[in-house]
Amino acid sequence: SDDKDARRQMFAGQKAAIIPLARPGPLTLAWWWRYEIMLVVGLPVVTLWAAARFGWPRVIAVMLALVLLVISVPVARREVWGWIRCVYTAHRIRSGCVEALIVNRRGRIPSVLWTSATPYGERVWLWCRAGTTATELERAEEILTVCCLATAVQVSAHPRYPALVLVDVIRDEKARADGPAGTGSGEGYYRRSS
């Protein structure tokens, strides 16, 4: 066991020395940060357009009504908070892959395909590029856990497509244990949690 750990650390060091991390291109960066870009650019543009069309008092009233709706309705609050957690988790999973050196020979990390909120945390679907595997992600569970500020991270390879990997980011162990069978394992791979 100690010999395997020593070889794994040696390989990680060699990989870091040999493989430079690829910088993402402008389109990739725009895709990664699409929600933040829409919030910073799109929201002001839509607000100014609506104010010119309907007037500032109506726009302010609608915005206040939306904020009050999210604050006062638990389902709306849960959905908005789940969406924010999903955006955050996608960024943190990418950072964790960089820190754990889960990269192919071109220095590219696995792609985050989809993130969804679950009662116990988030569920992330990753596409491993050629040269990366679910086994590498499993070995990096501790690093991903720390990066996501989670209680635990569980990695499951797709039973049929090895490049498709499910990462469960667990923030609430009790909710996970109380949930439906298979929500935190490969058995529940096809079930959408939310």
Rank of each mutant, 00 (worst) to 15 (best):
111 S>N: 14
169 V>H: 01
187 E>I: 12
24 P>D: 02
119 P>N: 06
146 V>A: 13
77 R>H: 13
8 R>A: 11
187 E>C: 12
52 A>T: 12
143 I>C: 11
107 G>K: 00
4 K>R: 14
146 V>I: 13
133 T>I: 06
93 I>C: 00
44 P>F: 00
33 W>T: 15
65 A>H: 05
59 V>F: 01
12 A>H: 07
138 E>H: 15
2 D>I: 11
15 K>L: 08
149 L>Q: 13
71 I>E: 07
112 V>N: 05
75 V>N: 07
109 I>R: 04
102 I>M: 01
54 F>C: 10
67 V>S: 10
120 Y>F: 10
11 F>A: 15
54 F>Y: 14
102 I>Q: 00
94 R>N: 09
70 V>I: 10
154 Q>K: 10
34 R>H: 07
23 R>Y: 06
85 R>P: 09
74 P>Y: 01
47 T>K: 04
1 S>I: 12
13 G>V: 13
63 M>N: 14
8 R>E: 09
170 I>P: 05
22 A>P: 00
154 Q>W: 07
131 G>N: 01
84 I>P: 06
140 A>V: 04
134 A>F: 02
171 R>P: 03
136 E>I: 11
155 V>Q: 02
40 V>C: 15
46 V>W: 03
15 K>F: 05
96 G>P: 02
88 Y>H: 06
35 Y>Q: 15
87 V>H: 03
63 M>V: 13
8 R>W: 07
68 L>W: 08
37 I>G: 02
136 E>R: 09
26 P>T: 13
24 P>F: 01
144 L>K: 03
50 A>S: 05
129 R>G: 02
111 S>A: 14
38 M>S: 14
70 V>A: 04
56 W>A: 05
68 L>N: 05
106 R>N: 09
164 L>K: 09
73 V>S: 04
119 P>C: 03
55 G>I: 00
161 Y>D: 15
164 L>G: 06
184 G>C: 09
91 H>P: 07
33 W>A: 14
93 I>M: 05
96 G>W: 04
30 A>V: 09
106 R>P: 01
82 G>Q: 05
1 S>H: 13
135 T>V: 15
62 V>A: 12
75 V>W: 10
149 L>P: 10
168 D>G: 04
192 R>E: 12
190 Y>E: 14
55 G>Q: 00
180 P>H: 09
121 G>L: 02
190 Y>R: 15
159 P>D: 07
63 M>I: 11
186 G>W: 08
122 E>Y: 05
45 V>Y: 06
75 V>C: 06
47 T>P: 03
33 W>R: 13
171 R>K: 14
61 A>R: 08
134 A>L: 02
108 R>I: 11
46 V>A: 07
129 R>W: 06
46 V>L: 07
129 R>A: 08
152 A>N: 03
18 I>V: 08
43 L>K: 09
53 R>E: 10
119 P>L: 04
111 S>T: 13
89 T>M: 04
160 R>F: 15
190 Y>Q: 15
22 A>K: 04
107 G>L: 03
165 V>P: 02
122 E>F: 05
74 P>E: 03
182 G>N: 05
105 R>H: 11
66 L>D: 12
19 I>M: 01
53 R>Y: 09
54 F>R: 11
39 L>P: 10
142 E>N: 15
